[in-house]
Nucleic acid binder design. Sequence first.
DNA 1: GGCTCATGTAAAGGTCGTTCACATGAGCTG
DNA 2: CAGCTCATGTGAACGACCTTTACATGAGCC
Lengths: 246, 246
Amino acid sequence: MSWRKETRRAERGYHHGNLKEALLQAALGLIAEKGAAGFTFADAARMAGVSAAAPYRHFRDRDELLSSIAQRGFEQFESRLTAAWDDGRPDTVTAFERVGRAYLAFAREEPAFYNAMFESGVPVDANPALQAASERAFNIIRAAAERLAALAPPGTPRPPAMMMALHIWSMAHGVASLFSRGDAARRKLPMSPDELLEAEVLIYLRGLGFPTDRRPPAKSAEPPPVPPEASSGSGVPPGGPWGKPK
Amino acid sequence: MSWRKETRRAERGYHHGNLKEALLQAALGLIAEKGAAGFTFADAARMAGVSAAAPYRHFRDRDELLSSIAQRGFEQFESRLTAAWDDGRPDTVTAFERVGRAYLAFAREEPAFYNAMFESGVPVDANPALQAASERAFNIIRAAAERLAALAPPGTPRPPAMMMALHIWSMAHGVASLFSRGDAARRKLPMSPDELLEAEVLIYLRGLGFPTDRRPPAKSAEPPPVPPEASSGSGVPPGGPWGKPK
DNA sequence: GGCTCATGTAAAGGTCGTTCACATGAGCTG
DNA sequence: CAGCTCATGTGAACGACCTTTACATGAGCC
């Protein structure tokens, strides 16, 4: 593999041409491997085939690279949450849960981004762009909560959407960070993180008075038989949101 | 500054006498200041007034010191959760919420421990003692959930205690890690992390069918009914667990 | 008094982050 | 095209850190 570096160097000449991007990609790979703590500026430079000093032409320091990655992470996060929310189709509750699953999926499938975003010690307000990206992502959850709150069953007080959003965020982040990633995933669980979160959200929504009597989650892999917004039944699925005991 | 070291040195002679403990304390202080990532083996040694190589007589490497701290953290955590649970007095739901608050309080008041335990990258299974301590702490939550599950209102299926425990843990950890510590605390919230978590747990419990207005439950398999105001400062306010909109 | 071994030290090698003076060459200007 | 400029990359150097190794110290025990 070490010939690669030489080759690259020969291929590209003195100037790299796209170093900033190359460094971001390299860092992403390194973080995925060894975590943000283990990631090294020097390693990223090596991987891009440049000297250790070169990165400083593109990032003030190691932290700036890290926060750039966190920012990109939030941007991708936002777009995945947006897609999952799909503007509340086919019904609000279904879409809402899909957002929860998308959260976990992101944490699982993009460990490097997730790490940089939430576990690297990069403060949210490290730079304005980062903060803005983070807020945009959260606003997806918030908007979804808003729609959900608007459906609050009559007779019950309408829950504040902001609070719901924060609750959902904390559940998703808690599950992701405790059970769904890296070493944390070694904790042995009686159910998958996805199931765990889905049950948690369903119970929570039921606590708010939302009808959550939909098919048992994990069992039917197919799209739901589209229950109308005003779901008629008022019960709980046969085994509750956590499925039936085996 | 350098005289200090000399002074100390003169005071204590060649052998420190209690270096292991001194290093743990020093590390704790440093982690509280700069986070586990910023904490340095060399700094801890300096702070204890010994050479940089001395710590290696007591810890295989930096990571072992870190996991020792995490272990101690879990032990203290366990004892605080135990105290908060107080064997379910005065009633199960009240005690259960007190455990949630104790979780947050620990995260807030012992940032160094919390950091080492959950945010330092130390794998839970770094060593058997750590893993055991971690499990003992979780078992408090689990035992509490067990008691709570046993009170499940008749007519509803009894929720698996393990699942409840995992749910509560994820809520507490999610809130703590997103909103209650360090930089994370800079996110602006419409309510305090404690209130946020309390509402979350109450809604969740209501979703499971538990009465959360904290009036003594109708069926008393429960310890003596105690006035609602006993510990939490309130029953559920008129507008629901989240209080009235301001 | 003398031995032994846990505990501490100094020195050294390797890695990093970061800076600085200098090199290169892509692109503009004429 | 010649020449200039400036963004971009290099190499060397500094100090801090982690860790190992050979050596020093002295507390506890015979």
